[in-house]
């Protein structure tokens, strides 16, 4: 029964990881570049929700909507500042610029909201127990929200025009331009959507951990490992890898020791890079 409980925990953990990393994977698919400010975007979402709830007195629904809007705008701003000036000219500079931006953003949170950890109240504060299994309602909601977000994302990518152009650009940049897609706009939209996804992850992380200026960094490291494991640009792979990573973390943490979990993940990452660099579900041989 112990095992069943661990699987439940891994499922909760994994769904947050999936949200945190899918935006990263989406951006990689379209821009072929790494956005290091993704962790700061996760923190951003958490802070906006916290601020709306505590200081503005919004309900959760309005806080959620406010966070989505703010994150989208932030994503477009990130694109404008760090991607637009360097794109296709110097890819390293995009990375360095996002590194600098993430440092700036963390410090802005520090100044605006203070360094102290903030407690974000959960949506529903209740504990559910079924036999040996127990979880807070918030955690179960986390799974539901993740599932819902992923379905919506899938729908957008498959059915809407914007989603189709995002997929087109991520398959073939030149082909997309030739068929009349405004790639410039696709880049902005993608970063906006990815930042929204990061924001949702931040909102869900808030009640579990505390809200603090650097809270997004450790999920971002996990997200890096996840996107490599799942294959950069493969959304299906990313989701599956998120659950694998969460499972490894929970099992290693339970049976070997909590401090060994990161080492284990690191070893897995090296193994994957040596034997299957394109990741479990990644498409290789595309221009990286």
């Amino acid at each position: 029964m112990d095992l069943l409980y661990l699987i439940l925990r891994a499922f909760i953990q994994g769904s947050i990881y999936a949200l945190a990393s899918i935006g990263l994977s989406l951006q990689w698919g379209v821009l072929r570049n790494l956005n290091f400010s993704h962790g700061a975007a996760i923190t951003f979402g958490a802070y906006i929700v916290w601020f709306s709830l505590e200081s503005l007195g919004f309900t959760y629904l309005f806080a959620f909507i406010a966070m989505l809007l703010a994150s989208f705008v932030l994503g477009i701003a990130i694109e404008w500042l760090t991607v637009k000036p360097f794109f296709a000219k110097n890819d390293t500079n995009i990375f360095i610029a996002t590194v600098a931006l993430s440092s700036i953003m963390a410090q802005v949170y520090h100044i605006v909201f203070g360094g102290r950890q903030k407690f974000m109240r959960p949506l529903v504060d209740q504990l559910i127990k079924i036999g040996p299994l127990q979880a807070t309602v918030q955690e179960l909601l986390t799974i539901l929200i993740t599932a819902f977000t992923l379905v919506v994302l899938w729908f957008i990518l498959q059915r809407t025009k914007t989603g189709r152009s995002i997929r087109a650009v991520s398959q073939d940049q030149v082909g997309a331009i030739l068929s009349g897609i405004n790639t410039r706009r696709v880049y902005s939209t993608t970063l906006g959507v990815a930042t929204m996804l990061a924001g949702i992850a931040g909102m869900l992380l808030g009640p579990i951990y505390f809200v603090s200026p650097h809270m997004g960094e450790s999920p971002m490291v996990k997200a890096f490992i996840i996107v490599i494991l799942g294959g950069l640009g493969s959304l299906k792979g990313t989701v599956i890898a998120a659950f694998i990573v969460a499972m490894v973390e929970v099992l290693v943490g339970r049976y070997i020791g909590v401090t060994w979990a990161p080492m284990m993940l690191f070893i897995i990452m090296i193994m994957i890079l040596i034997f299957r660099p394109q990741g479990l579900f990644g498409v290789s041989n595309r221009k990286a």
Partner: peptide, 12 residues
């Protein structure tokens, strides 16, 4: 840190 970050982006 904000200044350093801003300087990096400006130099880039």
């Amino acid at each position: 840190p904000i200044l350093v970050g801003a300087v990096i982006i400006l130099v880039l």
